[in-house]
């Protein structure tokens, strides 16, 4: 059986456990007690059901032969970290420079060809995408995108 399936199953079981444990400590305010159903009942019901289903699932999967087609994807982890890095950087740098850098990095890394081409392509994409999103959302619709700690990239 796939190690990730076992891990996911254990994760689901612990989440169910966490939900039940937290639910047991939820108060049931007196003004609502006439309804008999409190804030804890539904989460406990769903969490128990989830735990039960997860066990069934794990048991079934363990009986299956492990020759299922698998999706590879260990390479994705750096990209997730990269995107997380972008989220960390945005509030400090501001939306415009951080987004420009993200686009340049993504397009630059992933386009083939001579480096001058890659550079100019990625810069062009960076300018267009960043400008488009900023212009439409910030300028037109007034979405207050992060301006950075220096506030250089405001209105």
């Amino acid at each position: 059986m796939d190690w990730l399936k076992i891990l996911s199953g254990l994760g689901l079981l612990s989440i169910s456990g966490l939900w039940v444990a937290l639910s047991l400590h939820l108060p049931f305010p007196s003004f609502a007690r006439a309804s008999k159903v409190g804030p804890a009942h539904f989460p406990i019901l769903v969490a128990s059901l989830l735990a039960l289903l997860t066990i069934i699932w794990l048991v079934r999967e363990s009986r299956k032969s492990p020759n299922e087609r698998e999706v590879r994807g260990i390479h994705l982890i750096p990209w997730y970290f990269g995107y997380a890095g972008y989220l960390v950087v945005v509030p400090f740098l501001g939306f415009i420079p951080a987004t420009f850098l993200l686009v340049v990095a993504v397009v630059g890394f992933k386009t083939r060809g001579p480096w001058a081409m890659r550079l100019s392509k990625s810069f062009l994409a960076g300018i267009i995408i960043t400008g488009l999103e900023w212009g439409v959302f910030q300028k037109w619709l007034g979405v207050p995108l992060p301006t950075g700690i220096l506030g250089l990239w405001g209105r």
Partner: peptide, 8 residues
């Protein structure tokens, strides 16, 4: 939604 208690 019914009691206003913060959950999870």
């Amino acid at each position: 939604p019914v009691t206003g208690v913060a959950r999870f």
